[in-house]
Design a protein around this nucleic acid. Structure first.
Lengths: 215, 215
DNA sequence: TTGCGGTTGGAACAAACGTTCGATAGCTAA
DNA sequence: TTAGCTATCGAACGTTTGTTCCAACCGCAA
């Protein structure tokens, strides 16, 4: 179940339902294209046909709008991941599922995910802390899988940092996809995910499909 | 030598020298911390002691300021890379130098690099095109190295896309470092670069520390 | 001294922004 | 009908922003 804390007070009342979803969706679309700062509440209002003042019936502030997008998207992704990964077998399979789920979720909620990935720093105070908490939970989940694949630490001094670094490398590959992915050129994402997992496990030298013999 | 085209008209006159460098440096510092949109020209002026109007003696516009930062930083990095890589031996060594140079430049010009990495989309028209051109040159340089490591293509259908994808994965790892790097925890960058190269070449399963002889 | 071009600052402007206020419909329960 | 709640609107306020104008300063050559 997803985190709920002091910054989501206004899930009470009628400020929910399909209208809210529509507003969040339109806002995500604009913000993913133009960025959070460059998207005004007026833009979102215009896009949805709602008046400017009407927006403030659904959101306390612009930052609250951003927060709602991030919180919904992130906790939904997190739930999906924790459910799927727990059913996996060994660590490699868990990693594969983590990557493929991430990319799958990504294609279904491109705009929202882009916002989650690049607009965290636009949140302040409690709202920042809440999303940061979700992010950390996501990271920890991945880091444990990577640590499992690396095997027991102990030989090198900062072996503890290894899992952290490699996990951050993986998230780097995943998150950077927003910057270049082109459906016409790079679909299907499943293949992309396979490449990513393959690179992570075996590197460029690990043969795939067919191979040269090695020393 | 770095690209020069229609958008850098104002390198004429006295609008250069240490004062310009100071302004660009202060602006980079603020923009790396708060983002381009959240940094006003007034902020930069206040930081440097120059008046608001005085800023417009050095920059045609706020976007021009951003462009100057990106152009200088990127062409300098590009020059450095092309020089160093041409001296390298095999493809693996080239990749290693590419990564280590990138990270080295990165530590010397953290703020400017962060801006180059994340604020491209804030440029429009010719300014956008010019930086995009530099970026493409950088990418091509890397992609050729990766292609060389992968070996001759021809077996799989979209093998041509492989080098592109793997290169983008590498840039993903590199660029994402901005999001988490902590000098107290992650220095020295040379070790980080080694880890990145090792993952790229051999993956998590490749042995490290105890190394096997090769070829 | 005068003159001049490179450099700087004070003041102002128009536009855009986030936010608030008060009013007004529509609906439902008493 | 009345009372109250949900949903929406037009208008406005105060602030910040990028940018411009123009006057003034500086150092140096004539």
């Amino acid at each position: 179940m997803a985190n709920t804390s002091s910054a989501d007070k206004n899930s009470t009342g009628a400020r929910s339902g399909p209208k809210l979803e529509q507003l969040l969706s339109a806002a995500s679309n604009l913000m993913a294209r133009e960025g959070y700062d460059q998207t005004s509440i007026r833009d979102v209002a215009r896009e949805t046909g709602l008046s400017l003042a009407g927006m403030y019936y659904y959101f306390q502030s612009k930052e609250d709008l951003l927060y709602k997008i991030q919180h919904r998207t992130f906790s939904s992704l997190l739930d999906e991941q924790e459910k799927t990964i727990s059913e996996a077998g060994d660590a490699e399979e868990k990693l594969r599922r983590l990557v493929q789920n991430h990319l799958s979720y990504y294609t279904r909620h491109f705009n929202e995910m882009k916002i989650c990935t690049f607009e965290l720093q636009s949140l302040k105070g409690d709202r920042y802390k809440n999303i940061e908490k979700l992010r950390r939970r996501y990271f920890k989940m991945a880091a444990e899988i990577v640590g499992e694949i690396l095997g027991p630490s102990g030989n090198r001094a900062d072996r503890g940092n290894d899992a952290r670094h490699y996990t951050l490398f993986i998230f780097g590959m995943l998150n950077w996809i927003f910057m270049w992915f082109d459906p016409k050129r790079d679909a299907p994402v499943e293949d992309l995910g396979e490449k990513l997992v393959h690179l992570t496990l075996h590197g460029l030298h690990g043969r795939r499909g067919q191979k040269q013999s090695r020393g």
